[in-house]
């Protein structure tokens, strides 16, 4: 197998990890929206913590992306 092809396959496999992050971001948004629906007055606080949680979750996907890019470009 050519090295180039192996790199591309490896990058693709590395991005599988983004699946979990996507699930996690969805769950965080779900929780946030439910909270806001139950208590619309607390929307500001809930939004802030929700965005923080989403960012932390998203970081996992970013790590995957970085690994994939490192494989591809280096």
């Amino acid at each position: 197998m050519e090295a180039e092809a192996a790199k591309m396959i490896g990058a693709g496999i590395a991005m599988i990890g983004a699946m979990g992050a996507g699930l996690g971001v969805g769950l965080a948004a779900l929780g946030g929206v439910q909270g806001i629906a139950r208590n619309p007055d607390a929307a500001g606080t809930i939004q802030t913590s929700m965005i923080l949680g989403i960012v932390f979750t998203e970081a996992i996907a970013i790590y995957c992306l970085v690994v994939a890019m490192l494989i591809l470009f280096i």
Partner: peptide
Amino acid sequence: ISFSFRLFGNIFAGMI
């Protein structure tokens, strides 16, 4: 690491 790679990853992915 997490601070720097979060910002880098998001923007670099956006550029690509």
